[in-house]
Simulated scan of single mutants.
Amino acid sequence: MTTPFEPPPIPVPPARHAVARPGRKLGPIAADVGSAHRAWLEPMRAQYRMSGLTLSELSVRVCLAKSKISELLRGIGLYPRWEIVLGISRELDLPDWPLYRLWKQAAFEAHKSRDWVEGCSEKTALTTAQPEAPIDHRAFRELVADAYQHYAEVFLDLEQSDTAVSDTFDILWLRWHDALASPDTRRFAWDVLRTTVMTRTPHLDGRPEFRHAAFDTVALRSLASESERLDQIAESLELFTAMSRLADTQLDLMVLRRLCGLSQKNTSALMGIALATVRSSERHAEHFLQGILCPPPETEGNPA
């Protein structure tokens, strides 16, 4: 039987492979590029690699120096104006609207003023009516959006989680062909969501910090007395601190199972992993947490 999170059958295009091109290989994204900037830059770089175009050919098409295009695709130098990004994106056949939303958000992250952003936008010919995403993308979004939101809210406040989920679907729109051509669209999408959420989540010693969620759990809301609530908060804080030490997949499925209330079957469908993997990973996660929260008592050595 189909679970609520399984997307409808959709035609899968043939897998795309990066096209070999002459000339120097495109360098990596600069280390200081922010998460919002990276959100649209990585799909643009992926599309460039698939396009078969060289930097020289792209330079001629958009009337921009090859060195400037290289810098833009690496996130080096000043944050690029929208008309330049749009010109390159149209040669690479990327959809305008999700790219613009991500570009705009990253512009504010780069401390650009609203006047600067609006000034860039006024010089381009975006359609006045926002186009719709592909129908299979919209169907997929309708199926998983609520669960994605619940997951994001464990790690982020309401405004940040809204932005993270919205960005996830914009990135998926930009990379929808790659999502469909991947071994599992659901897994591809989940990886995008997780990356988008985790780049916004505070980390402590390399582990995601989400103890604030202890103050808004189902168990806590069901308690009436103040003392019971305080005990539950302390218990939840200890649990969430231990959960942050889990491996990525184990953490995600424990969040979905324990904090979002999903069944094993729905967790499997949402994350795009086998049901057997969910069961096995959950057992290992529970064993790990048990060892931290309820360690076995130390035994005294026998006297000599």
Rank of each mutant, 00 (worst) to 15 (best):
V278Q: 08
E122H: 11
A139F: 05
G34A: 11
I88W: 02
P22T: 14
D96R: 02
V197R: 07
A39V: 06
D93W: 03
P295S: 06
D136W: 06
R114H: 06
W190K: 06
T127Y: 00
V144N: 00
E286D: 14
S281G: 07
L259S: 12
L78G: 11
L126D: 03
P303S: 09
D231S: 14
T168K: 10
P7L: 03
F215V: 02
H150C: 09
T195G: 11
K112A: 04
Y79C: 01
A247P: 02
E122Y: 13
R141C: 11
E238A: 14
L86I: 08
D178W: 00
P297F: 09
S263Q: 12
L86A: 10
H203C: 04
K265C: 01
L64H: 02
R81G: 15
L126F: 06
L58A: 06
G272S: 02
D252F: 02
F169W: 14
L99R: 08
G206N: 07
A247V: 05
R221N: 02
I29W: 02
I29A: 04
Q130N: 10
N302L: 13
A269N: 10
E132F: 09
L172Y: 03
F288M: 09
Q250P: 01
W190S: 02
A106M: 01
L180W: 01
L94F: 03
E91G: 00
G206L: 05
R141K: 15
Y148G: 02
S59N: 12
P95I: 00
A269W: 04
L220E: 03
A276N: 13
R245Y: 09
F288Q: 09
R138E: 14
F215T: 14
T277W: 08
T128F: 11
S236A: 14
A106T: 05
L126V: 02
P28L: 09
I10M: 12
L143T: 08
P9K: 14
R114Y: 07
E118M: 13
Q149L: 10
V19Q: 13
P296Q: 15
W40V: 05
G27A: 11
